[in-house]
Design a protein around this nucleic acid. Sequence first.
DNA 1: TAAGGTAGAGAACGAGCGTTCTCCGTGGCA
DNA 2: TGCCACGGAGAACGCTCGTTCTCTACCTTA
Lengths: 186, 186
Amino acid sequence: MVVTTDTEARERVLEAADRLFYAKSAHAVGMDELRAEAGVSLKKLYQLFDGKDALVEEVLRRREEAITAATMKYVLRAVTPQEQVLAVFDWMADSSGTTDFRGCAFINSYAELGPSSDRVTAVVRHQKSGVRGAIAAMVTGMGKPEWVADSIFLLFEGAMTNTAITVSSEPARQAQKAARFLLEST
Amino acid sequence: MVVTTDTEARERVLEAADRLFYAKSAHAVGMDELRAEAGVSLKKLYQLFDGKDALVEEVLRRREEAITAATMKYVLRAVTPQEQVLAVFDWMADSSGTTDFRGCAFINSYAELGPSSDRVTAVVRHQKSGVRGAIAAMVTGMGKPEWVADSIFLLFEGAMTNTAITVSSEPARQAQKAARFLLEST
DNA sequence: TAAGGTAGAGAACGAGCGTTCTCCGTGGCA
DNA sequence: TGCCACGGAGAACGCTCGTTCTCTACCTTA
């Protein structure tokens, strides 16, 4: 028998849930499908998590950390502050290349569950204010006015959804161009 | 007995479905709840529409027309071409004032149903390209480059989602400011 | 080896869904 | 007045879901 600690099982469940929820939306993924994908018994699944709602919430929180880390890799690779700000659009353009890109998981969750789950709404708000704050920190660090940061944030958000809908990295590139213009002309 | 033609019943169903689907997301609204809200028998409901999927599709198409008309009222009220472009953000700010504002119904539907319904995805794409085209027509009519139109479109999209998530018209106003800047400095 | 406890497989359960069907009351018409 | 066709109310059906429960097989330990 393959030894599997609870920690490992937890991780497998969270990874599978993140992938499936994002790809199909949470309500379209049954606990049994998730159990099969994670290679875990239904009993253990309910031992590890307090039901589906709690699992959705934890998946979103985990994804928030993962996305922050992923974008930071792009940001820190850049040299100048301006290139750092624009690097988040490189991340987006690269991410959209994967066939299973479905836009912003937080907006998607808000659309699906927002009205029925305050917990999910809270995580979504947290993520959005985090992204907005991160951009603001970079931009104001460059001496640019705060409204430039907010504008770049909105370009980012619009590009996320439309990159998914149009199945193309063009919105990401377009948003990057607009952000560059805003940074250079202020 | 109150006389009700099929056309009237159809209209009542579509109005109720639009309102409920937008407020709660489609999968959270049962056909029976919809029947009750529209004041129609279940039998007639299924006489008038080929099931829920078809109803969702028709609701989205109807909403596309309604939103186009609503924004056009704002656009045509403005005098200068620049004010016309910026008027769509006035529409957004005003719409967000209603307590049941939940962002872009098409993005929400894409998030909820996109992976399972090509028909819905097609309607969403159609609406997005329509909005993008309408902004492009106004902006290029002003002699501005096309990338300005695309940027304003992305600002619009980002503001729609974040106006809903933050329950505030601030993103709409912020996007408007950014759009004005883009229009004036090119 | 024998007993006991643990964990997995999957049946069971109650609820809710979309959809269809049945029944009954009420109209119009000869 | 008697008949019939229609439409509404809502029961019924088959399915899927989230969640819990049961049973069995195996591993551990004395």
